[in-house]
Simulated scan of single mutants.
Amino acid sequence: MRTLSVLLLLCGIVIASGCQQEKTLSKAVTTFEAVLDSIQEENGLQIDQTYTAQADIGARYDPSEISGAGPVFEVNRGDAFRILAKQDEYVQVESQDLRGWIPVFYFSKEAANIQTGAPYEMIVAKEVPVASSPGEKVKEPHLELWAGKVVHIEKSYGDWVAVGIVQYDAEYGADMWVPKSSLQVYGPANAKEGKLAQHSHIYDEHGQIKEEEWINPVFIQEETQIEKIGPVYQIIGAGGQTGYIRVKDFIPNPFIDN
């Protein structure tokens, strides 16, 4: 009888231990599922799911850099897209036969708070990296705006503004955001970026005319003097060209027609 009691006691311990292990395993599975749900929630949009854009934006060719290329297609608030791929803060979507990349932010509820107003110009007060969405910390800047650059503004979100720029004589501004605190009020005296006046000449350091084609915009590096010419700006062009122009031949706004 005592042997039977001992056996029953041992069986009970084993069964209890098994139940405890099952509870522990069940708890672990539940915790793992919660972590997965949390990860999915943090990542936001899911591949092969359809979402609605909450603001207008130009879809880009490439999620890894901001260049002078215009958008692949225009996205309007309310347009629905299936997510094809994800990379960092971007998702790839498809519109008819075209594919492009859009910042995840534009599918969030917060994007509906982007304000659009009458366009105006400002000047970059200090060098600033461009972000793909307002409030984003730029880890590896693909584009930095120089101090003195003129930017075109139509949209804002809190303390951030979306800036349009002129690249290789074409306006561009698909998804470029900077803190408004990095900008200053536009004034011709503060603008280091602009256009060449019609019929102006580019000179070398000796005052000789350089026979080469220049592309707007141009950026002032410094003001100096050339004996044959007088006051000049040393400039750099969109293609990396350098030279000098008469001070009077500089138009301090790349967005206006000369």
Rank of each mutant, 00 (worst) to 15 (best):
P141R: 09
L143W: 08
L143R: 12
E144P: 03
A147K: 15
E154V: 11
K155E: 15
Y157W: 14
G158D: 06
D159E: 14
V161N: 05
V161R: 07
A162N: 10
A170R: 13
D175S: 13
D175W: 03
V178S: 05
P179W: 01
S181N: 14
S182A: 15
S182L: 08
L183M: 04
Q184N: 08
V185T: 14
G187L: 07
N190Y: 15
E193K: 06
G194P: 06
K195E: 02
K195W: 00
A197M: 09
A197H: 08
A197Q: 12
S200K: 01
S200C: 00
D204M: 03
E205D: 12
E211H: 12
E212Q: 13
E212V: 05
E213L: 08
E213H: 10
W214P: 02
W214S: 05
V218Y: 11
F219M: 08
F219L: 07
I220T: 10
I220M: 04
I220Q: 03
Q221F: 09
E223L: 12
Q225Y: 10
K228C: 04
I229L: 03
I229S: 00
I229E: 00
G230T: 13
P231K: 14
Y233F: 05
Q234E: 15
Q234P: 14
I235A: 07
G237E: 01
G237Q: 01
A238E: 11
G239R: 09
G239P: 00
G239V: 02
T242A: 06
G243L: 03
Y244H: 01
Y244A: 00
R246S: 02
D249F: 05
I251N: 06
P252K: 15
F255H: 09
F255K: 09
F255N: 08
